Simulated scan of single mutants.
Amino acid sequence: MTAASAIDAETLAGRDLTLGYDGRVISQALSVSIPPRSFTAIIGPNACGKSTLLRALSRLLKPTAGDVVLDGKAITQYSSKEVARRLGLLPQTSIAPDGISVSDLVSRGRFPHQTLLRQWSPDDEAAVQRAMTATDITHLANRSVDELSGGQRQRVWLAMVLAQQTPVLLLDEPTTYLDIAHQLDVLDLCRSLHASGDYTLVAVLHDLNLAFRYADHLIAMKDGRVVAEGAPADIVDADLVLDVFGLHALVIPDPVTGDPMVVPLEQRDR
């Protein structure tokens, strides 16, 4: 049994959430439920509230109304360390301390597991090495994070989150800065974590066809609200794409996987 499976079937939900910044409301009466052990993709146009929802689910953003519930308890009832042992977050943008090495940054993912009585252990070292191997950054271990490309840095941050070994992973645009090959590498990794049965993954994704191919559960958002929710094959059609994105498109079976695939129509074809 992996460390992630020690907490069985974590559940994560938002109930009647009102979310916003500086007095500006983005979502109101928003309720979502993340199926345990699912790979959930949140999709929608820019500024529709996807990242805001993810920040609320991770306790980075406090709702002005409603509750985020983690494993049957309001997330505010947990200490910060307890949350960090149950839920890992890859934010949209991250800033590393100046001069920190890759291995040192990834090692910080083990902080929630440290106590006065439990300091760095072989288990921590093994978790860091597994995370670096999974994200293909072992050869960068001694490099300064400052020296890396955007895509390499993204993989380092993902490795830090994996090193936390939490049952729930929240990923805000995890393929940002990555070329197509590394996008597929990251999503293949997510799929393998999901297939293990030990993780619940929630990712904000912009590429619809990748979202439909990799996720088994979708949350489609528009104007701060959930428009549709369910398995891609059950909810994705041309009407949904038009409603959510204002895009005229064909939705056909992916020739490789059979999942829904969006083929945008040119303006003259509308």
Rank of each mutant, 00 (worst) to 15 (best):
Thr2Ala: 14
Ala3Ser: 09
Ala3Tyr: 09
Ile7Pro: 03
Leu12Tyr: 01
Asp16His: 10
Leu17His: 02
Leu19Lys: 07
Asp22Leu: 14
Ser27Asn: 01
Ala29Gly: 02
Ser33Thr: 02
Ser33Gly: 04
Ser38Tyr: 02
Thr40Asn: 02
Ala41Val: 06
Ala41Trp: 06
Ser51Leu: 07
Leu53Asp: 00
Ala56Met: 03
Leu57Met: 01
Ser58Asn: 01
Leu60Thr: 02
Lys62Cys: 03
Pro63Trp: 03
Gly66Ala: 02
Gly72Thr: 04
Lys73Glu: 09
Thr76Val: 02
Glu82Gln: 14
Gly88Met: 09
Leu89Thr: 08
Gln92Asn: 13
Ser94Trp: 13
Ile95Gln: 13
Ile95Lys: 07
Ala96Tyr: 09
Asp98Pro: 07
Asp98Glu: 14
Gly99Trp: 09
Ser101Lys: 13
Ser103Ala: 13
Arg110Val: 04
Arg110Asp: 05
His113Asn: 04
Leu116Ala: 02
Arg118Trp: 05
Trp120Phe: 03
Asp123Trp: 07
Asp124Trp: 02
Gln129Val: 11
Ala134His: 01
Glu147Met: 07
Ser149Val: 02
Gly151Met: 01
Gly151Ser: 05
Val161Pro: 05
Leu162Lys: 06
Leu162Ser: 04
Val168Thr: 12
Leu169Asp: 04
Leu170Pro: 07
Glu173Thr: 08
Glu173Gln: 11
Thr176Asn: 14
Asp179Gly: 12
Asp179Tyr: 07
Ile180Gly: 03
Ile180Val: 14
Ala181Lys: 12
Val186Ser: 01
Arg191Tyr: 11
Leu193Arg: 11
His194Trp: 13
Ala195Asn: 15
Asp198Tyr: 11
Tyr199Arg: 14
Ala203Thr: 03
Leu205Ser: 10
Leu208Pro: 12
Asn209Gly: 12
Asp216Arg: 11
Leu218Phe: 11
Met221Tyr: 09
Ala233Asp: 15
Ala238Gln: 14
Asp239Trp: 10
Asp243His: 12
Leu250Val: 11
Leu250Lys: 13
Ile252Ser: 15
Arg268Gly: 01
Arg270Pro: 00
